[in-house]
């Protein structure tokens, strides 16, 4: 892969933005006022919330790409679904680690069966299931995993509603709406930066998968040349 192609430029630019952002955002976060009730621990939300967005985004990208694979036979769709599922598992892990850290201070326990965290956990389990099915699902693994992604996407609203009625103790309004403008700005910037990071990681991971597919084609072509009729 030679440098200088447009996709490489975008990749480098994205990586640079993300890197600069991650250098700068701590100052911005430090500058936000300390939340009067929860104290300094509230600042974990600048990581927690963007990661949660990306978990949801990954799930839906995975499902959309899976539809393209299932119904149009798009191999690119399959690759995109795999890569976004992996990223979903990664960012979901961030959500599931930072959530309890915060909960320990705010609620006194690591794990509360609160609506949003439980929904995130279930989505995360579905994405892990996707990766397991894809890996160990036998000859139909790719289509099987794509089917799981499809069900996961339609299941997400159901999960959210059920869990919400089931239990609601998440500080759903106390963080963002009562926050001062600095907090809003910091959360939004953080979300944007995480999105860029997600995009960069996705592009890199996709590039690897594409290279792998291209290598496969080359191997086949080599075999053809050697075997020729």
């Amino acid at each position: 892969m030679s440098a200088g192609r447009p996709s490489d430029f975008r990749l480098v630019a994205g990586a640079a933005v993300a890197a600069l952002g991650f250098l700068g955002i701590p100052f911005l976060i430090a500058a936000t006022p300390i939340e009067p009730v929860m104290g300094i621990v509230q600042k974990i939300f600048y990581f927690h919330v963007p990661c949660a967005y990306l978990l949801f985004l990954s799930t839906f990208v995975c499902a959309g790409a899976s539809i393209a694979y299932l119904f149009k036979g798009s191999e690119g769709g399959d690759r995109l679904a795999l890569c976004s599922a992996e990223l979903g598992v990664l960012f979901g892990l961030c959500v599931l680690v930072t959530g309890p850290l915060w909960a320990r201070v705010a609620w006194g326990v690591y794990w509360q069966w609160d609506a949003r965290l439980t929904s995130a956990l279930l989505l995360w389990l579905m994405l892990v299931g996707y990766l397991l099915a894809r890996r160990y699902g036998g000859p139909a693994a790719k289509r099987l995993a794509a089917g799981l992604a499809l069900f996961a996407a339609v299941d997400a609203p159901l999960v959210y509603v059920s869990v919400n009625v089931w239990r609601t103790i998440h500080p759903n309004t106390s963080v963002i709406t009562q926050s001062v403008p600095e907090m809003k700005l910091a959360v939004r910037l953080a979300a944007l930066l995480f999105l860029v990071l997600w995009g960069v990681l996705l592009a890199l991971r996709l590039r690897l998968e594409r290279a792998r597919a291209a290598l496969g084609e080359l191997e086949l072509a080599c075999e053809d040349a050697l075997e020729g009729p």
Binding site: P139, G216, E219, L220, E223
Partner: peptide, 9 residues
């Protein structure tokens, strides 16, 4: 073709 295996050519 199955993945990287060519069953028929």
């Amino acid at each position: 073709t199955f993945g990287r295996h060519r069953a028929l050519i």
